[in-house]
Simulated assay, not measured.
Amino acid sequence: MEIRYATNPTDSKQYTTDKLRKEFLIEDLFVNGELNLVYSHHDRMVIGGAVPVSEPLKLEAGDALKTEYFLERREVGIINIGARGTVKVGGEEHSLEKQDCLYIGLGHEEVTFHSSDSSEPARFYLISSLAHKEYPTQKLAIENATPVEMGSAEECNERTIYQYIHEGGIKSCQLMMGMTLLKPGSIWNTMPAHIHDRRAEVYLYFDMSSNGRVFHFMGEPSETRHLVVSNEQVVISPNWSIHSGAGTSHYTFIWAMAGENYTFKDMEFVKMEDLR
């Protein structure tokens, strides 16, 4: 498990491009036959990618968590971005098609990832946060999720948002997780920008072409930076940072948050004239 320590806005003003990418961009999360995990000290989130091929992959605590098993004091949200696969929780199997979501609560010792076809493996993206009580394990298929339409063609940000784990959906301790699909011709996400000082956020960009890129904007509103992001790469956005992007072509992204607030009421929107 890779460890990423927390950062602050004063120091980040001095970062080079390489340093910015090292601190905030996860480039190689999805590798065939591997389960890769990154522990971020921003709200103690664990970000992972599991691509089981011929053998199942087990979610384990390793040495970093200092617990007997991964979900001893944690919860996890999982979205499949690949072909059909199965997540086994104890003796219970949960089949996930592409873009289906599964929440697993505190206290489950055995969690394994399986692909239905090794030639077309599942690609499980997972986000874990700390938990204080157990909520039921629950699957939400994309076909059963409620879409929220936002944006406009004129602003190049027409998009459909699926809120999987949140106050009005799958219940959790503090994890929130969802997915945003941009309409053809739309390239902008989360603009006008905002911050939420009591929770960090993580973006996974995927369903991009090999030549497609997202220019992800971050930093304090008065002094922004950008990351050039490729397919299936992840951006860690600290609580003091905006998180917004524009793509060279079509893309989809999964957003996840954990922190002090469990609703969307703490967002502080930034006026366009205040962005620098």
Rank of each mutant, 00 (worst) to 15 (best):
T137E: 05
Q233N: 02
D43S: 10
N231W: 15
H194M: 10
E220W: 09
N8E: 14
E155Y: 10
T263Y: 00
S119A: 13
N80T: 12
T224W: 05
D100W: 05
F113V: 10
S119P: 12
Y15F: 12
E120S: 15
G85S: 03
T10G: 06
M218W: 07
M150P: 00
T7C: 01
S152F: 08
W240R: 04
E167K: 05
I104A: 03
A131D: 10
I79W: 07
K58T: 00
Y69R: 02
M177K: 13
S222G: 14
N144G: 09
R4Q: 13
M45D: 02
R44P: 03
V46E: 13
I79T: 04
T137A: 07
M176K: 06
L59Y: 05
Q233C: 04
I81Q: 09
E232Y: 12
T224E: 02
P184E: 06
V235A: 05
P9Y: 06
S95R: 15
I236V: 15
E158K: 05
K19E: 13
S249F: 15
V228S: 15
N144A: 05
L71H: 03
K13Q: 08
E155G: 13
Y5E: 01
R21I: 02
R4T: 03
C101T: 04
D100F: 03
V214K: 11
V46M: 05
M150W: 08
L130N: 06
N32S: 04
G85Q: 09
Y203Q: 11
S54A: 11
Q233A: 02
D18M: 15
Y5P: 02
L106E: 07
L175E: 05
T146Q: 13
W188E: 09
R213D: 08
M208Y: 07
M179P: 09
V76E: 03
M191S: 13
K66W: 11
N261A: 08
S95N: 15
E68R: 13
G212Y: 14
G169L: 09
K271I: 03
E167C: 01
D28Q: 14
G168C: 01
R199L: 07
S116G: 11
Y5L: 01
H114S: 00
D266N: 07
I242F: 06
V229N: 00
V111L: 06
